[in-house]
Nucleic acid binder design. Structure first.
Length: 328
DNA sequence: AATACCTACAACCGCCTTTCG
DNA sequence: TCGAAAGGCGGTTGTAGGTAT
């Protein structure tokens, strides 16, 4: 019934790091004979190792076509992009990166890229803004607004305030990036001296034809105020929040240009079209990929955040572009 | 200087899929 | 067609080196 283990459990096959001598034996044997049957290979090569271990050592480290060394920016972007499309299909991802192994990519993801995305407020699983930040924000802000001046606050309350600021900053980053992706010149933000309420609308008039002002036309700070006080689902459901970018080329804001010096944004070129645009839509990470006929806009609200449900936003072509946000 | 903690990555484990007799 | 063997994959663990206390 059950499969026998690759190596006999009672056999005292060696485990742990490979020695240079073992590597030499394995390379020489495969060089002469090819690997053939991995199970028989250890005995034939004079190695006291499990065949599986030999295969892993060969495919991940000893193969002559393996590229060693750090990942380039292009490789990073490609991994993030492919992960957004394929998920944890490391072997599939590895086939797109010449000379890289699935194990290497997986490790690099877990140790570097995952943290990088998290630090930018992006969920590394969904590749969308972290909703945990949004969900926790009202409480954080409420706590932070308690009491008076910061110097009067106990330490833990100051910590909460800092967390709230950090969450706000990450959300702001996401919003600003959307604008930047759409060609908005963020370098001009500096002239507003941090007073975001004086910022011009983030979109042009075509995006503001609603009873309520479109979120995208609000300053980031007032936007966050609305969020923290419980924003209506209608607003967030507004497709104008991120509407393909064509509504964002306000002449007042200009196009392109360098990033704001005090923000961790960067000038970005559009990514090469790695996959069909449809692959990005909704990006639910489900096998169907939204193929059940329900569009992103039709997704029912389900957020704990009082009507706020990022799934409701028409995100097409927006959040799915997070892969190029890491170009910095 | 010693110890604890953190980080990165190599290697292992167990399950699933494919191949083959 | 079936079942066992082998290969492959993704998740997890172990360990070495670096850093902080």
């Amino acid at each position: 019934m059950g499969r026998s283990p690759c190596c006999e459990q009672d056999a005292d096959v060696k485990k742990g790091p490979w020695t240079p001598e073992e590597d030499k034996l394995l390379v020489e044997y495969i060089g002469k004979n090819g690997h053939g049957s991995w199970r028989r290979l250890p005995k034939l090569a004079g190695l006291n190792r499990c065949g599986k271990s030999c295969r892993l050592r060969w495919t991940n480290y000893l193969r002559p076509d393996i590229k060693r060394g750090g990942f380039s920016d292009d490789e990073e972007r490609l991994i993030i992009h492919l992960h957004a499309t394929l998920g944890n299909k490391w072997s599939s991802i590895a086939t797109k990166l010449k000379g890289r192994t699935d194990n290497e990519i997986k490790n690099y993801w877990n140790t570097h890229l995952r943290k990088k995305l998290l630090s930018q407020g992006i969920d590394p699983v969904t590749h969308r803004p972290r909703t945990d930040l949004l969900a926790g924000l009202p409480n954080l802000l409420a706590a932070a607004n308690l009491g008076g001046a910061a110097h009067q606050l106990p330490l833990d309350l100051n910590a909460i305030k800092l967390q709230a600021d950090a969450a706000k900053f990450q959300i702001l980053q996401g919003l600003l990036r959307q604008q930047q992706l759409a060609g908005v010149d963020l370098s001009r933000l500096g002239q507003y001296n941090g007073n975001y309420d004086n910022l011009p609308p983030l979109t042009n008039d075509s995006c503001t034809q609603q009873t309520q002002p479109a979120m995208s036309s609000m300053s980031p700070d007032s936007l966050l105020n609305r969020i923290s006080s419980g924003i209506s689902g209608d607003m967030l459901g507004s497709p104008e929040l991120c509407h393909g970018g064509d509504g964002l080329s306000s002449p007042e804001l200009g196009q392109g240009g360098p990033s704001a010096s005090n923000m961790t944004t960067s000038p970005m070129a559009p990514p090469p079209p790695m996959v069909a645009a449809d692959d990005h839509q909704c990006n639910t990470n489900t096998p169907s990929g939204g193929g059940d006929g329900m569009s992103c806009e039709q997704t029912p609200a389900s957020s704990t955040f009082d009507g706020l449900n990022l799934d409701d936003i028409d995100m097409e072509g927006c959040w799915a572009m997070t892969d190029i946000l890491l170009a910095e």
